[in-house]
Amino acid sequence: MSENECLVRASVADVFAVLGDGWSYAAWVVGASRIRDVDAGWPEAGRSIHHSVGAWPLLLNDTTTVQEYEPLRLLRLKVRAWPTGEGQVEFEATDRAGQCHLVMREKALNGPAALIPEAVADPILHARNDETLRRLALLAEGRRH
């Protein structure tokens, strides 16, 4: 399982405002290129974001679905990007003196990506998820202004 963390110069509420805005997903998730639809009630468990990955004209349509949501603490997602496979991504937030300590964990669940040895996959996921957290932090920090 790949794990990244950062200290966001914004409140946990600001971070979860971004996580809770399904239409912003493509703005901070590396690899997501557009949002086609967001289920009403996102980010409640069972709700999905319908997105595309890749670059035009090679776009693949898929979904990201909430597995578990605890407001201002945890968001666990099942992410799909077939034909590469499915994974689980988790965001866990804690308050640190008015700032948000955010931990992102990701693991492949099935499909071809799950067959890649962790020693090979982890550095790639770590780099991608570091950029994902950087983008998320910028959006959350921008909410303060």
Results as ranks from 00 to 15, higher is better:
52 S>W: 00
52 S>V: 09
53 V>G: 12
54 G>D: 08
54 G>V: 06
55 A>M: 09
55 A>I: 08
56 W>G: 03
56 W>D: 01
56 W>T: 04
56 W>Y: 14
57 P>G: 12
57 P>A: 15
57 P>N: 06
58 L>C: 03
59 L>S: 04
59 L>P: 04
60 L>Q: 10
60 L>R: 15
61 N>A: 05
61 N>H: 12
62 D>T: 04
62 D>A: 02
63 T>R: 15
63 T>C: 03
64 T>L: 01
64 T>M: 13
64 T>W: 06
64 T>V: 11
64 T>R: 04
64 T>F: 00
65 T>E: 05
65 T>A: 06
65 T>N: 12
66 V>T: 08
66 V>Y: 15
67 Q>Y: 01
68 E>L: 09
69 Y>W: 12
69 Y>S: 08
69 Y>C: 13
69 Y>I: 02
71 P>H: 09
71 P>A: 10
71 P>E: 10
72 L>P: 00
72 L>T: 06
72 L>W: 08
73 R>T: 12
74 L>K: 10
74 L>G: 09
74 L>P: 07
75 L>M: 15
75 L>Q: 10
75 L>S: 04
76 R>Y: 00
76 R>L: 00
78 K>W: 05
78 K>E: 13
78 K>M: 05
79 V>Q: 05
79 V>A: 02
80 R>C: 00
80 R>Q: 12
80 R>G: 00
81 A>N: 04
81 A>W: 07
82 W>D: 08
83 P>C: 15
83 P>H: 14
84 T>R: 13
84 T>P: 01
85 G>E: 06
85 G>N: 09
85 G>A: 02
86 E>W: 01
86 E>H: 07
87 G>H: 11
87 G>L: 01
87 G>V: 00
87 G>A: 13
88 Q>A: 07
88 Q>H: 07
89 V>C: 15
90 E>S: 09
90 E>K: 13
90 E>L: 06
91 F>L: 13
92 E>A: 10
93 A>C: 07
93 A>Y: 04
93 A>F: 10
94 T>A: 11
94 T>Q: 11
96 R>K: 10
96 R>Q: 10
98 G>A: 10
99 Q>F: 11
99 Q>L: 09
99 Q>S: 14
99 Q>T: 10
99 Q>N: 10
100 C>G: 02
100 C>Q: 05
